[in-house]
Design a protein around this nucleic acid. Structure first.
Lengths: 363, 363
DNA sequence: TTGTACGCGTTATCAT
DNA sequence: ATGATAACGCGTACAA
């Protein structure tokens, strides 16, 4: 007597209800049916549940749309997902898949998902992937969010106004009187990494400040990357008096190193981040950032997806850009005196870099 | 000339390669095949991709396991997901679905997923749901994570040692000399909500302090809930000198209200949270919390799932408990003088409650 | 090792 | 409105 889920099928229901399987099928699809009570009884009695796979195979649709992001742990991406869910129509469900910044896993996810979902909202790992063509071949709707690929001109997308954000950051720092300005950037192979770097460099340059080699570090959008990059920056001679950290995680890492080193913000160094952090105003000091509405960005992406789905896949292409704004709190100030910062940071060597949890406040 | 994805099937490949479809099928399943080069050529030429749905329908398996959580935006849950992914075998992919704390959406997700996945790792919304039986009927492996249902005795689970955590928190506050201790708890209908409340109450009581009615607030694990509850607590006469906030989001909300009110922690009020916050040590002041390894908790859940899948669904049941620890930072101190806190909080009325972004530091 | 033939559970077509 | 039946694309006895 094995409990073997001896799947009861639509035929079983039909037989018990005294109708044909076609009628039961119609019943499920909302058609008016004569003996619907008998059918409902049979369903209840047999505890019948339609097989979604069989249905998918037959109809070619699944009612699922996937959102693929590099890192669920990053608040920004989870906000995107929530935004997408908020405007998804009731007859569709959204699945989230995390690629963990791994090309291999992104590849695998795509492989597994194609044919199983009706559409994909994707934040690609890098810009050089040949993704759009695969979707075109399958006639599967695709929307890029936050990031695009270089071959993605024909693909709808929703990205942030990265250049404007970077410009805002640059001017904010400049306005405070800084000239030794550094940037911890994301991978230049990603859309936000590239545009934020270019935008920042250009904005600085427009006001006569160059972002010299040592003052720009191409990092990886991770907290550890921010931590290490900031360490590297502090070791420069002279170190920068202000730095722009190009995403939330790197900002956190940078802040962590600063705290470990006893460097006080903004007296000794000014920090401005990109992407808001949930606890930004509770930090010490409250963090000044370039923010955008990630929730809305996700919502927009899903809206485009819905149109794609409803109007036919190849119907239209739209590139949306969501606005960014500067949220001024208190992590930026005028440049401090060089001596204090330099002497404070000289006390440490790189072996100290891994003590990420060390908490010292005394200078 | 419509680009209509005129799905090429295994039969097309077979024909072009000069073999039968069965052979191509076998080729895909790793069998040794005579004309495998011809097959590979045909596949490449036709750009053939096996239909995962058809395969699923036939085999009854999908190679997918779902992780269903109430709130992806909560770092704790995303850490669980990452943990689960970290130990998932290569031939399985993990999908994340967010129920957004909505019973309806949880229900829908379950409906949509059953039959489409090989297993589910679930953090149920409340304890009173009749979920296990549905899975048993389908013979579908289920593992509870972080939360269980009361009817879930026969279901493997991985939860935190909530009672111990609550006890740690209580003793920490007591050791600092507090006696007017309050708690902002989660819904008593959830596992962590219930155990943390019971544990805290018991630990207090064991040392002669009662958690009186006004001092316990059943909130909802949300940031806004924490904000409102803290507001309510401050209005009490006398207000508590210390409070235990039962999850990360509520802690944040509480902190936010405190800052808006200009109440300084820990001088005027001590705070201890449950669940670590990524930025905990960067907060002002660095937050003391009861923490656990959420990543490991997710990993454990997936490990159980893997055993369930490999050894047969009904093979075994295991209830794991992950340890918690007190991370002492600086948000707890001795009770302050009553007068300062009371007079500070009396200046505001409830209309002020919504000004969540107000940032005042002066007292 | 290979091919034939059937079935997985559902929906869609075509009569009735 | 209903029934019979043919797909949907694949895996797998079974026999060769």
């Amino acid at each position: 007597m094995k409990p073997e889920a001896a799947t009861t099928t639509i035929t079983d229901v039909a037989r018990l209800a005294g109708v044909s399987s076609a009628t039961v099928s119609r019943y499920f699809n909302g058609a008016r049916v004569e003996k619907r009570e008998a059918i409902e009884d049979a369903i209840a009695q047999l505890k019948y549940r339609p097989s979604i796979v069989a249905r998918s195979l037959k109809t070619g649709r699944s009612g699922v749309i996937a959102v693929i992001v590099p890192d669920v742990k990053n608040d920004f991406f989870s906000a995107i997902v929530q935004g997408a869910e908020s405007v998804a129509t009731d007859d569709r469900m959204v699945l989230l898949v995390n690629t963990g910044d791994s090309r291999e896993r992104e590849e695998k996810a795509l492989d597994q998902l194609l044919g199983r979902v009706d559409g994909v909202i994707l934040a690609p790992l890098t810009e050089d992937e040949e993704i759009p063509s695969r979707f075109r071949e399958l006639g599967l709707p695709l929307v890029f969010v936050d990031r695009v690929t270089t071959s993605g001109a024909g693909v709808s997308s929703v990205i942030a106004d990265n250049a404007k954000g970077a410009t805002l950051a640059a001017n904010h720092l400049l306005d405070h009187g800084h000239s030794r300005i550094a940037m911890i950037g994301g991978p230049l192979g990603t859309t936000p990494g590239r545009f934020r770097a270019e935008g920042f460099r250009d904005a600085l340059s427009a006001r006569g400040v160059e972002l010299s080699g040592d003052y720009f570090i191409e990092s990886d959008f991770s907290e550890q990357g921010g931590y290490r990059s900031m360490e590297q920056l502090l070791r420069l001679d002279p170190p920068p008096t202000a730095v722009f950290t190009a995403n939330n995680l790197m900002t956190l890492g940078a802040l962590r190193l600063l705290r470990a080193r006893g460097v006080v913000v903004p007296q000794e160094i000014s920090i401005i981040g990109f992407d808001d952090i949930v606890t930004a105003e509770l930090l010490s000091p409250p963090l000044t950032t370039i923010a955008r509405d990630a929730f809305q960005q996700g919502a927009l992406a899903m809206t485009l997806m819905t149109r794609l789905l409803d109007e036919g896949s190849t119907a239209f292409v739209e590139h949306s850009v969501v606005d960014v704004e500067l949220i001024e709190r208190s992590s930026c100030g005028p440049p401090g005196s060089d001596d204090s910062l330099i002497s404070a940071t000289r006390m440490f060597d790189s072996a100290d870099a891994e003590s990420i949890h060390k908490e010292k406040r005394e200078k």
